[in-house]
Design a binder for these strands. Sequence first.
RNA 1: GGACAGAUGACCGAGCGGUUUAAGGUACCGGUCUUGAAAACCGGCAAAGGAGGAAUCCUUUCGUGAGUUCGAAUCUCACUCUGUCCGCCA
Length: 452
Amino acid sequence: MIDIKLLKEYPEMFRAYASLRGSSVDVDHLLDVDAEWRKINIIVDEQRATMNNLAKQKNIEDGKKIKSELAKNEISLRELEEKRKNLLDLVENLLAPEVPIGENDADNVEIYNWGTKPSFDFQPLFHDELGERLGILDLKRATKMVGSGFYYWVGDGARLQNAAFLFAENLLIDRGFIPFRTPILAKKASLYGTGYLPFAQDEIYRIVNSEISLIGTSEQSLVSYKMDEIIPEDELPLLYTASTPCFRYEAGASSRQTRGIFRVHQFQKQEQIIMCLPEESEYWNLFCQKNIEDIMQELGIPYRVVLVCTGDMGAPGYKKFDTEAWFPAFNAYKETHSNSNLTDYQARRSKIRYKSNNKNNFVHTISSTALTDRVVIALMENNQTSEGFIKIPKILQKYMNGQEEICPHKQSRQIQKINYLEMENRIKNTNYVSISDKYESIRKYFLDSNKS
RNA sequence: GGACAGAUGACCGAGCGGUUUAAGGUACCGGUCUUGAAAACCGGCAAAGGAGGAAUCCUUUCGUGAGUUCGAAUCUCACUCUGUCCGCCA
């Protein structure tokens, strides 16, 4: 939510923002409704003051007279209030002055790239082919089990994915983040507070017969952790991180078919959330960017960073960096991270304030990816060998018992043996009346079947 | 799922139809004292909105929503959440 006072002061700025973002927000209509609301508000406030005075004087007669008139005005006030709020909710955040002008992701501007794209003397495989051949990523059975847009990580795939997330989380903890495991369901108020309602309405999985939904990102559960709170200034900044599944409805996604697990209904994401002083949000935005890039560099994945343009920015976004990993089979950079400064947009909606010199003010929030399954598949594509194996980056090996490579034979199983008799004797050595003690026919059936 | 208790400002907590204009405490901010700090003492301090150049004034909010009343933190109803006990359970 934006500050309506700002909108009243700089309406032409907000008109410009709306057109740059390609949004249909009607600034003038909002200003009209606001003026009307204020007019009624003054009348109602005056009538309430009169009422209060009459009540104090115990003037029952006159109190009764005003009561019905006040009630009528209060209804129109409430209607206008709701209309005003609904319009205000649709106004997007301000934009940073350095945001590039553009219509869509094609107009985002590359500002940095790192790493050498691997050159293969063979045709590199797509992550889904590679995963399917090694038996570590299974889309077919997931489709059978739940439908398209889902996948299983299997065996070394599950280990590799887990290793990557452990590595990323540990890196963030070392840099001051508090790790969380959050609920993956959230109320409407949490989705509204983080700016996902009403904007991303069609992206949300609702739970039938309930008011709660699956989260689309742990940004929703982490920012809402401090909803309605006033934070002492010396507790800022708050650095939170969580790894959770994320659920996206992806309405109409089938028309934008992409192969593999790029566009799916459920994926794992390690998120960075920072709540900070307004004057520090630019710093923490870049702090998160540094973490992203260090993670990518440690994993050895070539990437580039783009500054997201006006038309590609979400409603709460003030400034956004996308990080795109190199995917050799696609022969393209593809988005794996997004890192946004949301300024006070979420804080206003979620009522997250801090107290400084006995004054309350809204915090700024930074919301940034640290790692997702998309990074793991980038790693697979970049680290493939001519045999169709996958080299495991040094930094992840310690999370996989020193394993250096994923190849079919490495997945041979060693199933541990137990002392079955010892375990079974626990039952035999306990004194109690069992069903076979009580029912002759049951005892007889099991005795007979043991003989044959 | 059942029974009982409860929800009050950043936090704790009193109030149970009109002196609540929400007591008191903690925290926080300012001051006195002090070499400095602590302690003590004095003062300030709930949140949100509106009017005004300003001083200031007005309104709303005691979990949420509705109701009774000239007047509700206080009474009634519904709902939500929390605690305790019982039941079920990974």
